[in-house]
């Protein structure tokens, strides 16, 4: 299922979740390669959030498992980062302290933290606001802080839940490019969940399309286009159409 030249970093097997009688996730299987950028799209209400909560181990699965490097995923052991849809900057910490938070929890040595902070803040263009508090910056900036925090922890697996869902389109394009830049720099394994098909095709190396509830993986598409991608490129449009077709539930 993944590119031949890559090892599977994350293996998801028979992942199933039900709440009482309601089966939300039904026997999901897939792999994510080391350093791969995987997008997951699905119709609204297909259980994307449940899916992510399971992957991040915030919620126990009913059946099946998520393994990172062959071991069952555990936030205390593995390095998992999560960028939430809603703002998640701690208001009592400055931008810099917020970005450092994940690394502090991981108890990295202070010098390492400083080095990574400098690098990430430069990449995300936050150096100038290092000492501002979240209520002094815009919400798009806040989201970039959250993203910087996630990458700076150098996670084994980075989960992103529509991080740009609440931002306007123009800014989104800009931040998507930025995201790709950081990802290429850090070579992180990313699972990016979105309901925006264009965004998925723009970002992903591979797109998984989810079905309606009970959710399974309906299809998988490789996006082998050069970067930076062009929304008007006929190939791009072709893939987008395919994904749209697959996602239709009506």
């Amino acid at each position: 299922m993944i590119s031949a030249n890559r090892e599977a970093k994350v293996t998801v097997t028979n992942l199933t979740k039900s709440f009482g009688d309601l089966l939300v996730l039904n026997d999901v299987n897939f792999n994510v390669g080391d350093g791969e950028f995987l997008c997951i799209v699905g119709p609204t209400g297909c259980g994307k959030t449940t899916f992510l909560n399971l992957l991040s181990k915030l919620m126990p699965p009913s059946k099946g498992n998520i393994c990172i490097n062959g071991e069952i995923a555990d936030p205390k052991k593995h390095n998992i980062s999560f960028v939430f849809q809603e703002p998640s900057c701690l208001p009592w910490r400055t931008v810099k302290e917020n970005i450092a938070y994940g690394m502090e929890v991981k108890k990295l040595p202070q010098q390492e933290i400083e080095e990574r902070l400098e690098k990430t803040m430069k990449l995300v263009g936050l150096t100038d606001c290092a000492n501002l508090y979240p209520n002094q910056i815009s919400s798009s900036m806040e989201q970039r802080v959250a993203i910087a925090r996630a990458f700076a922890a150098k996670p084994d697996l980075l989960l992103m839940d529509e991080p740009y869902g609440q931002l306007d389109v123009k800014l989104r394009y800009y931040l998507e490019d930025e995201l790709i830049r950081i990802w290429q720099e850090f070579k992180t394994t990313v699972i990016f969940v979105t309901h925006n098909i264009e965004e998925a095709v723009y970002l992903a190396e591979r797109v998984l399309i989810l079905s309606n509830k009970p959710t399974t993986i309906k299809a998988e598409l490789k996006v082998d286009l050069p970067r930076p991608r062009n929304f008007l490129d006929p190939e791009f449009v072709e893939i987008r159409k395919k994904v749209t077709e697959l996602i239709r539930w009506w």
Binding site: K57, L58, H78, I80, F84, Y101, G102, V105, K106
Partner: peptide, 15 residues
Amino acid sequence: TNPTFIRMARTYGAS
């Protein structure tokens, strides 16, 4: 406390 903050900390492995 904002539940997102708690989830955020938890995914980083905070006790």
